[in-house]
Design a protein around this nucleic acid. Structure first.
Lengths: 269, 269
DNA sequence: TCATTCGACTTGTACCAACAAGTTGAATGA
DNA sequence: TCATTCAACTTGTTGGTACAAGTCGAATGA
């Protein structure tokens, strides 16, 4: 296959890099330049081992770098594959007033409009408030909250999880929140009908590597971060909900449109 | 130190996990439970090797997992340290009208207000438009753009990079854009004074693992993703700027306030 | 006192070996 | 024809060894 052997010859006087990094860099260049397009298979470890005159372990270290950077994935028995990135756009500012991306309304229609097949599981629990949620809802940590939890898929690929906590005082006014099953008209409308209107919200966006739990739920491989979207909704008087949505970072992008965008016809990616 | 040896005894009938995962899980539990608080040092590889009755390689695999999840960092000669997370809040919606977080205005004051020391380097280049930028600015790929690039530090720790591209037609109307050095009054005000007013913007937020280049600029260790904030600014007629800000994911969180938040006094973290 | 050396630690790199486990496709046999 | 087996691949796990390289503090010597 490769009669010729890789050398550090390309190293234009740069500092000497360890061999496993040279392997990673060489493969990264070839991936970037299209030698190995997204979805294609890389040569096997033993082939690379011969090509780079390195032991299998060294080649594995290099490949491990690429995996932890999310560039390639590996599966036992199959080999290494260049990662595909098919991102899905989420418009976060569209839900400003009533239609919340909650209980499947906006989510299902968005996904269906993109020609994909949505699917979700749903459950309701009574749970003591975790510290961060308690702080956002301005209730005591450990006090009772209703958790409405949603696990979402697109074409049977895990896409996101969404956990919305409601404070117990709100459940007293709107008891159906604590009942299992969907609220057909949407929780925001349901709450508004019971005199609790959401007049504003506060979004926090963060990223980090997934916990093992999150990696399991979203079937995330190594090297893929999660995007955390925390939306705290407010009535005129106080916080009424805290929604934490956890997205696969490799499949999602979030958008905010603010101000007049008359000049923005067509889409921007 | 540890006379007793770890066993799989804790495995309550669960599927057998490889030993290196057991090591990682055990250490993760101890980190979460406070046995090893943030900033503290983990036992050395050889100590862990004795404790878990595993080879050094196996222990290293387990530690490598924690590193790639951003939970711990390692440095040669020093050992493994539990990562500290000191996040910095960015209010993205505050810049809705004129004061852009550009050329240091909002950034410097924000950082100084937090009692930290801001520092930044700045440069201006003429560059052919990369494809994504060209698309956002609605110009031809490869056409001339002005790139104003900013590398920001907080207390001498690399914090973010910001690259703003302006289309060449805009530079004809506002020539100081292409000149090196700050624009004291802020680019947005400068543009407004030349009849180009930004009336809206479109934000895209994404996350991924850093490229080697980004890892170098931001001094990111393994297991820390970057947060990409792309803001495209529009005048009444067309796009006028594309700003891509790259943040260290472990040190930043982005906030959007939308609607009335009279009920949100105090802060939410 | 102060700077240097050096030893004892730490993690990093690189190699070897062996076997486990998943996948695929060709050969086999009913 | 069709299902099964099996051989030949792939990556995954675990052990070993050796040395390089970074860090720290104690011992050394001027």
């Amino acid at each position: 296959m490769y009669q010729q052997v890789e050398r550090v010859s390309d190293d234009g006087g740069m500092s000497k890099q360890p061999k496993y990094r040279q392997v990673a860099d060489a493969l990264r260049r070839e991936i970037d330049s299209g030698t190995y397009p997204p979805g294609s298979r890389l040569p096997s470890e033993s082939e690379l081992s011969a090509r780079f005159e390195a032991s299998r372990n060294t080649v594995r270290s290099g490949l491990g770098l690429l995996v932890s950077q999310g560039l390639v994935t590996s599966s036992q028995g199959l080999g290494y594959e260049v990662a595909k990135h098919e991102v899905f756009e989420l418009n976060a500012s569209r839900f400003e007033n009533l239609s919340f991306p909650q209980d499947g309304d906006a989510y299902s229609t968005d996904v269906a409009n993109a020609g994909r097949r949505p699917h979700q599981t749903f459950r309701v629990e009574i749970r003591p408030a975790p510290e961060d949620v308690a702080h956002r809802l301005k209730v005591e940590p450990g006090s009772r909250t209703v958790l409405r939890f949603c696990h979402r898929f697109v074409d049977d690929v895990p896409w996101s999880t969404q956990a919305t906590h409601y404070p117990s005082w709100l459940v007293d006014e709107a008891p159906r929140l604590a009942e299992p099953g969907d609220i057909a008209e949407g929780t925001t409308r349901y709450l508004a009908a019971h005199g609790v209107e959401q007049v504003g919200y506060f979004d926090e966006i963060a990223t980090r590597m997934p916990t093992p739990e999150e990696a399991r739920m979203l079937e995330i491989g190594a090297g893929v971060p999660v995007l955390l979207w925390t939306r705290t909704g407010y009535s005129e008087e106080r916080p009424i909900r805290s929604t934490v949505t956890t997205f696969r970072g490799d499949l999602n992008r979030m958008n905010y449109e603010i101000g007049s965008l008359a000049a923005r016809e067509g889409n921007t990616q």
